[in-house]
Amino acid sequence: MNQHQPNNPLHGLTLQNIVQELVDHYGWEELGKIVKVRCFNSDPSIKSSLKFLRRTEWARKEVEQLYLDTFII
């Protein structure tokens, strides 16, 4: 069931794609300075970051907002 969401700029993007694009753009070190979470600063990986972000709503929202500020707005 694929719903059209015209007011959601993140519609169709996976959290994995968002994190990967931010890492490609900023690198782990800079990303860890912008969003202060351990999964970006201590032995970072996409897998550990996704696990943390899926369980931690405030961190996921910060990452999504950074993506919007960087690539959309």
Rank of each mutant, 00 (worst) to 15 (best):
E57C: 08
N41K: 05
H25K: 04
F40N: 02
N41S: 04
V37A: 10
G32C: 03
E57V: 10
R55H: 13
S45H: 02
L31V: 02
I46H: 14
K51W: 05
K36S: 07
W58G: 13
S48L: 00
K33T: 07
P44C: 04
V37W: 06
V23D: 07
G27H: 03
F52Q: 11
V23L: 09
K36N: 12
C39D: 09
R60G: 07
V63L: 09
V35T: 13
G27C: 01
L53T: 14
V37L: 09
D43P: 01
I34N: 11
P44V: 02
K51D: 08
S45A: 02
K33P: 05
C39A: 11
S49V: 09
R54E: 04
W58Y: 15
E30F: 03
R54V: 02
F52M: 08
L50V: 12
K33H: 06
E57N: 13
P44E: 03
S45V: 01
K36H: 08
A59E: 11
A59P: 12
I46W: 12
F52A: 09
K61M: 07
I46K: 15
F52E: 07
V37D: 09
K36Q: 08
W28M: 05
V35P: 12
K61W: 02
K51R: 15
K36F: 03
N41R: 10
V35C: 13
K61P: 05
D24T: 11
E57I: 11
L31K: 05
L53M: 13
